[in-house]
Structure formats: structure tokens, C-alpha cells
């Protein structure tokens, strides 16, 4: 009997816009996230990759309770996350935290680091002054920053240091799950490695579970146990990182991996120029990747391929009628 997952998302959906205007006209609606189901197990890192506009950040906001899904269920540790976030975000925020993409924009420019880090300690944990002091020094130590930085303002920090402060804030309430939304993409490459190594260390030290969202395939590959690939609001492939990166089944995953530049890789596979994302206001009836897919058939255009298990591999699923063969 496998352990119950820490987070399970069932057919989550988020629609922006929609509804009717005052005079009864339909407002255009965009399905940012559609029919997303996944599980995050205790202690693992689930990587979520996809290109801009694929809905990965919306998914992240649903998980931390900043946005409410318009459909589906999200269960965290046996609790209904959506209902809880609607009633009292604080209770959820004690367990689920978020690290933002832009480290400098996520810190209020007019507050000292101490004020920023104390906020979760006061509002989420209700610690008194002495308890806060010791927790603050613990946090600064955890992200490898000198304690005298506490009384400085965000603009005095470099991107990498600011992101470490962002991580410290997420850690402050001692959460179980941290959603990292592109945590290193705004950073320089040399700093990227520092932050990734710190995240790795914290995970083992505090027994954390990560949902790691990024557009950078190599970063996701290096941190993830399992990977979900998103395209146009849906998960097109999910499975163990080694399987998804080693033998991608969905043609989109295939294309992503072929397009990614890597040191020493001379030629990149590129498609024709006509390949575009479908119009989000007018989505195609079938597979969203159909227009770009070299393997597409009429069946793909007619209906949505289900996210089915790949033949021969248990944990590896792909939403494709004509998947690539395993290697």
C-alpha cells in the first residue's frame, strides 16, 4: 500500500474571464489550466516544464491558494485545499509556501529584511519576540546569509541574495510543501548554481517537498524526481524524470528536448515558422499540439487524447494517440 500523496490535484481547471456582461453578452474566456490531475508525494521534487503561456504559473498559484480553481479538486494532506484557502489562507500558508520568480519584485522595497522575514513568524506562527529572534538567525543560517543583512533593505542585495531571502521567507513558517515558480530564471548562471545547491540542501535538512516550475529543461532535469510537461493548459506527459527526459513519448516533449541548446550541441532541431500556439480564445477541439505535430492524424484533431499510461512503463503517462516509441 503506497503512502497517501501529500498533494493531489484532480481535474483542476482555471478559467479567466467568461461569464456575461451587464447586458447579457458573453465575455471571452481563457482556459489557463484545464483538466490537470497530478499527485505530489512526500519528499519528492515534482518538476513542471512548459513554455510561456502554458499555464504552469497559474497552476502554482492554485496550489498555494492565491487563486481559486474554477473546477476540480485540490487535496493537500487530506484537507480540501480550495475550501481552506477561501476561508483562511493563513492555515494553508503554514504548510504550503511559494518562492517567486523575480526575487527583487517579491520583496517590498520599503521594508527591511527583518520586517519581511518576521511577517510570517508573527502572522502565521504567532511567535513572541525572543522566539522570533532565534528563528530569524536559524533562517539566515539556512540560506547561508550573514545575520547582519537583516537590517538592510532589498535594493542593497544582488539577485542571488534576494532570492535566498525569498527562500528564507518561504521556509519561515516551516512548511511541508514549497512551490518554486521559476526560482532561478532571473539569476545569472553562476548564481543559479548557488541557489540550486541551497535548495537541494534545505530539502534534505527540513524534509521538504518541492513543486519546481521552470521553462529551463536542464534545470528541471537536474532537480526533479518526477516531471510533468505542460502545453496549452494541459499536462501532456508526466513520469519519472529519467523516463520523460530519457525516452520522451509525447511529440511536444520530444520537440522541447531537441530544441534545447546544450554546450557542445551544434545543431538544434527547429520547426517551420508557421508553428504557433493555438488561439486561447478559440481552442481547437482536439489535441492542442496537432497544428505543430509531425505525427498528427485526423483523430488528433477531432478529440482530446487522454493522459494514458505508456505501454511498458507504469508511472509514465502521455496524452498522445501516436506516441514515440520507448528507447
Amino acid at each position: 500500500m503506497p503512502e497517501a500523496p501529500l498533494l493531489s490535484i484532480e481535474q483542476a481547471e482555471k478559467v479567466f474571464g467568461g461569464g456575461r456582461t451587464l447586458f447579457g453578452r458573453m465575455r471571452p474566456a481563457v482556459h489557463a489550466v484545464q483538466d490537470v490531475s497530478l499527485e505530489v508525494r512526500r519528499g519528492e521534487t515534482l518538476g513542471v516544464v512548459g513554455e510561456s503561456g502554458c499555464g504552469k504559473s497559474t497552476l502554482a498559484r492554485l496550489i498555494v491558494g492565491l487563486d481559486a480553481p474554477t473546477g476540480g479538486r485540490i487535496v493537500f494532506d487530506g484537507r480540501d485545499l480550495v475550501a481552506e484557502a477561501g476561508k483562511d489562507l493563513r492555515r494553508l500558508s503554514r504548510d504550503v509556501q511559494y518562492v517567486f520568480q523575480d526575487p527583487v519584485a517579491s520583496l517590498n522595497p520599503r521594508k527591511t529584511i527583518r520586517t519581511i522575514l518576521e511577517a510570517p513568524l508573527i502572522h502565521l506562527l504567532g511567535l513572541d519576540r525572543t522566539a522570533r529572534e532565534s528563528r530569524l538567525s536559524e533562517l539566515m543560517d539556512a540560506v547561508n546569509l550573514a545575520p547582519e543583512f537583516l537590517d538592510r533593505y532589498p535594493h542593497e542585495f544582488s539577485g542571488g541574495q534576494a532570492q535566498r531571502i525569498g527562500i528564507a521567507r518561504a521556509l519561515a513558517a516551516d512548511p511541508k510543501l514549497i512551490v518554486l515558480d521559476e526560482p532561478v530564471s532571473a539569476l545569472d548562471v553562476s548564481v543559479q548554481a548557488q541557489v540550486l545547491n541551497i535548495l537541494d540542501g534545505l530539502k534534505t535538512r527540513f524534509g521538504l517537498t518541492y513543486v519546481f516550475i521552470s521553462h529551463d529543461l536542464s534545470v528541471v532535469e537536474s532537480v526533479s524526481d518526477r516531471v510533468a510537461v505542460m502545453y496549452f493548459g494541459r499536462i501532456v506527459e508526466i513520469g519519472p524524470a529519467r523516463a520523460v527526459f530519457g525516452s520522451p513519448r509525447h511529440p511536444y516533449t520530444h520537440l522541447l528536448l531537441q530544441s534545447a541548446p546544450a554546450p557542445g550541441r551544434r545543431s538544434l532541431v527547429s520547426e517551420d515558422a508557421e508553428t504557433e500556439l493555438p488561439d486561447p480564445y478559440n481552442p481547437p477541439p482536439g489535441c492542442a499540439f496537432y497544428a505543430r505535430c509531425p505525427r498528427g492524424t485526423d483523430m488528433c484533431n477531432a478529440r482530446q487524447p487522454p493522459l494514458d499510461e505508456v505501454a511498458g512503463e507504469t508511472a509514465h503517462r502521455a496524452a498522445c494517440f501516436h506516441p514515440h516509441e520507448g528507447r
Binding site: 520568480q101 520583496l107 511577517a119 502572522h123
Partner: peptide, 25 residues
């Protein structure tokens, strides 16, 4: 802005965010 989301996740109420986070800016 992201720091407002961050303040919400730090457990601040809307009034606290409005007057402590947004007002100084």
C-alpha cells in the same frame, strides 16, 4: 506586484497589506 502576494502568503490580512505594504510605496 509579487510582494503583495508574498505578504498574503506571510499571513497578512488585506487591511495590513494595504496600509503596511502598499501605502509606504
Amino acid at each position: 506586484r509579487e510582494f503583495v502576494d508574498a505578504a498574503r502568503l506571510s499571513g497578512k490580512s488585506h487591511a495590513q497589506i494595504l496600509f503596511i505594504e502598499v501605502l509606504p510605496n
